[in-house]
Nucleic acid binder design. Structure first.
Lengths: 214, 214
DNA sequence: GATATTTTTTAGGTTTGCCTAAATTTATTT
DNA sequence: AAATAAATTTAGGCAAACCTAAAAAATATC
């Protein structure tokens, strides 16, 4: 359980191709650096991580596989919670955080089937399949979307409580179709059309919204 | 998590009105008696159990409430697994054993709603509601009902068009009181009394009718 | 009712995952 | 390159939940 959280978090941190550092991971997991070192030693003996003292670490192929399996569970549960149980998309993460640790391959594969093999979770993140493969999705930042070109919201970066709440308030949801009508160079804010509503959204918000050409 | 397993297991053991003993619980939990003593001391300080050294123990009202909440979760998940994910009824327990420890009241209440507030799990055990109330007695298959013991029809499995039509024709409805008068070993058909009518029903039909002792 | 047997508890140990504080290594300044 | 600062590791502890072995209490047997 604790181990699973480590693997998952390392996976998310190692997108850049440098090693993940002890402090970085400690920050994300809200644990002390000494605890990270402890666990890295353990995960190294299990060959899930290629830790070398003072040099940081990355997942081994086995570690990556394990991490993707956890992420698969997490995102399938998120999809289930939003789609079937009608949770708001900004409430699903917390609960999925617990459900993801239920380890039954049969459960997850049957859940996947029941949900009709969804490709993206409610945040727009791709859901790995049984083999760890997932859509790569050429998402672009909303700022890069040309005027009057319709696009679908497919990913929200930096999913802080406040951001999610704010989006919820503006009814900007994953899957929503957006058209940019005006760009204000002064502060880089945008005027967008969404469900026949005209909204102005700030540079800050724009930076966290990713879309795919629809 | 471990604590929850203790509470749940004590609940099941204390049906008789004697105290539950250390050895009994150790047996069920596959733990050593010494471990039970440890935990009973802990649960006593939390006022979940009224343990006295050498005298066994029972749940306090608070402990019972906690246990019922865990049993509620367990049985709702079992129902979900069988009904929605199409698990066999004899495979659900193991997985539910893990799911039951996910603690989100909102999750369970929404799941309950999604499942349309089922009253019995796939084993025929009653599912407690939010307040811990549940139907008394266990749902059993009509085939298991002893002769001359009145019971109420409470569940129809495998609700195919044909089956429902057939039941309708025979006026066998949910809530009807039934008494089994004769059992024919030859083809496992039954003669039952319903509203002062004597009916013979086939093995096939019997298998889909579940009743509760009235 | 004394003794033997069973049950339960106590005492002390193990593992896991976390912690603090001190030591060590690496990185940054000057 | 030496000194300082930052990052990381080591060493030693703590709590939870389990364990074994010995001691104590309750129960059964003669």
């Amino acid at each position: 359980m604790s181990e699973e959280n480590y693997l998952k978090t390392i996976f998310h941190l190692q997108i850049k191709d440098e090693n993940v550092t002890t402090n970085e991971l400690a920050g994300k997991l809200k644990a002390k650096p000494a605890s990270i070192t402890d666990m890295m030693k353990k995960l190294k003996t299990r060959k899930l991580v290629n830790y070398q003292p003072y040099q940081g670490f990355r997942l081994t192929p086995d570690g990556k596989k394990a991490a993707l399996s956890i992420i698969r569970r997490h995102r399938l549960w998120e999809y289930f919670l939003a789609e079937k149980l009608k949770f708001n998309w900004d409430e699903v993460h917390e609960v999925a955080e617990q459900l993801e640790h239920v380890s039954s391959k049969k459960l997850i594969d049957k859940l996947d089937e029941y949900l009709a093999f969804p490709k993206f979770d409610p945040h727009g993140d791709p859901i790995p399949d049984t083999n760890g493969k997932m859509e790569t999705g050429k998402q672009i930042n909303l700022a890069e979307l040309p005027l009057n070109k319709p696009a679908k919201v497919c990913f929200i970066a930096n999913q802080s409580e406040l951001l999610l709440e704010h989006l919820n308030e503006k009814k900007i949801t994953i899957g929503a179709m957006i058209v940019v009508k005006r760009k204000f160079g002064y502060d880089d804010s945008l005027e967008i059309k969404l469900d026949n509503r005209l909204l102005t959204i700030s540079d800050q918000l724009v930076k966290n919204i990713f879309v795919k050409h629809g």
